[in-house]
Design a protein around this nucleic acid. Sequence first.
DNA 1: TTGAAAGCGCTAACAC
DNA 2: GTGTTAGCGCTTTCAA
Lengths: 333, 333
Amino acid sequence: MKSIDRPTMKDVALRAHVDISVVSRVLSQDPRLSVTAATRARVENAVRELSYSPNRSARALRTSKSGLLTFVLPQIANPLYLRMVSGAVQKAKDLGYQLVVAELTHAAEQLREYQASGIDGILLATGGLDEDQLGEWMEGQMPVVVVNRTLENSENWSSVDYPRAATLAADHLGSLGHRHVMVLTGPEKLPGWSARSDAFRAVLGDHETVEIRASGLYADQGYAAAAEILARRQGETAVFVTSMMLAVGLLKGLRESGVSVPEDLSVIALHDDDLANYVSPPLTTVALPMYQLGQLSVAQLVNMIDDKKEGPIVVTDPPQLVVRGSTGPPGER
Amino acid sequence: MKSIDRPTMKDVALRAHVDISVVSRVLSQDPRLSVTAATRARVENAVRELSYSPNRSARALRTSKSGLLTFVLPQIANPLYLRMVSGAVQKAKDLGYQLVVAELTHAAEQLREYQASGIDGILLATGGLDEDQLGEWMEGQMPVVVVNRTLENSENWSSVDYPRAATLAADHLGSLGHRHVMVLTGPEKLPGWSARSDAFRAVLGDHETVEIRASGLYADQGYAAAAEILARRQGETAVFVTSMMLAVGLLKGLRESGVSVPEDLSVIALHDDDLANYVSPPLTTVALPMYQLGQLSVAQLVNMIDDKKEGPIVVTDPPQLVVRGSTGPPGER
DNA sequence: TTGAAAGCGCTAACAC
DNA sequence: GTGTTAGCGCTTTCAA
């Protein structure tokens, strides 16, 4: 399959009766441009008439910038990341980049591959790695933004406002009358994660709060955690889950154990997805602006590529409480 | 942020005491290579010592092949497509390509953009467009594979074996004792879709089968269809749903109408996802090899790019019945 | 304000 | 079997 020859800058130059370099200047919107209005118009006409668009490979070679960003995900088939990717795709397009997706497999060798592959920067979404493992990524010469978590030894991260979201969840449970609440959270003792439970406890828990760690972030690990929750429960009337898919699994576990939600136990989770409507009972959540997180992370990365200073990003769009059926007053039964 | 200068082919050539063109030949594994074993070894050593990897932009410019494939999706945030994308990413990497993801928005203008953006080919997953709308994509000079559906006027499509999957579903319901079954299917009268219900009817339905068309393929449209299903139901004891997310919504609709599944009505759906475990009752499905579909579609596309003849692809990995809680004998209550 | 020219790193046709 | 060379399409310095 052969693609028809597209017009080059030379063709445009010929048609506009100018030198190819003039075309280049007009197209690159050089700030200190020195082009007559007339010349510029001729060039722009020629571009339009030929429906010329620059050859990305040539530009990439010349400028040593590929115009490619890679979004590295722990596993693509995870609904949690989809809105983020969607936002990232949109923003990348706006900024003239294309977004390549990749799955994180062998961290170390993979980084080398990326460096070899000529991409301009990396978005790294991988809550599971600790800061040591992340080290080699951050120290490489390639711009990297770690998405959806905080970092202590680097400013190259972006996140949504988990403390605020956790506070919203705590307020909701508090206003319902809950005083004793368990926390179901992710597997690792990572800074981003403890921030979620800490903020939560700051509102609700002057007393001791039982915190259960699931062994992962997916529904099956939430399902597995149900048993531990029930075993360690001592009068708690609600569970705060720090990541939605865990709650989806938990709901199933509780159902099978004959615990009714929310009469016996209320459940609220961070992150929202259409899916929350379809579990039973529908899951009360705090929705977080993941689409915007994707967008802003790309913007941040591109700034790094352009050598503009850029600190960490926290998306300011406020989290939204979405009340569905899984929360209610305590001990209603 | 400045990336350190990577070694070029020239550096390798210098170190191996050969001409740059020899390096090129060794690296491109030219079939009719004419290189001494010794020279080849020297080159390979130099490559290793410098950890050289070719500059993709330069190669792209020279060969006018970017090494980029774009996967166009109707909406990224749809679990249905995830495994496909995952398989495609994996295969693309194996074949030396990178996979760019994009969302389908304005079909017409977008195609032009792709042509301008220098990608080598397109995977198009968009069950919603009819063959006319697809026309401009197929007729362009760019290789396009339409993924997950059949086409009548083109061979450039790939699909899983929906008829076989539908047959599996029908067999399951049949062996359970169901004789009167409704079909809930997608919105359009597309060839790929009628194949699903036709195959199903071939097994079960000598008699007339009521077919309900949902207005989309997502859970909310399945939810909306519940009312119509119940209104038009005349003794049917099961529903065959041609796409999983519809069934997820349907289950909720039935639950809210007080219909118990599977006692009052069995539900079985095409496509499987972990999610099916977490709805209530767990959904019986026929799992389809979507990961392999992603892989094979990429292979097919790359063959087109390489001018190798390639007909349509139907993934041969067999569909698998996954019995969960939503199917049972009719009228058990 | 515009033109000329070099060269980014690589491949491939051709010469030796 | 190996080297020479032209040039892919573009950006950018320098000269006019």
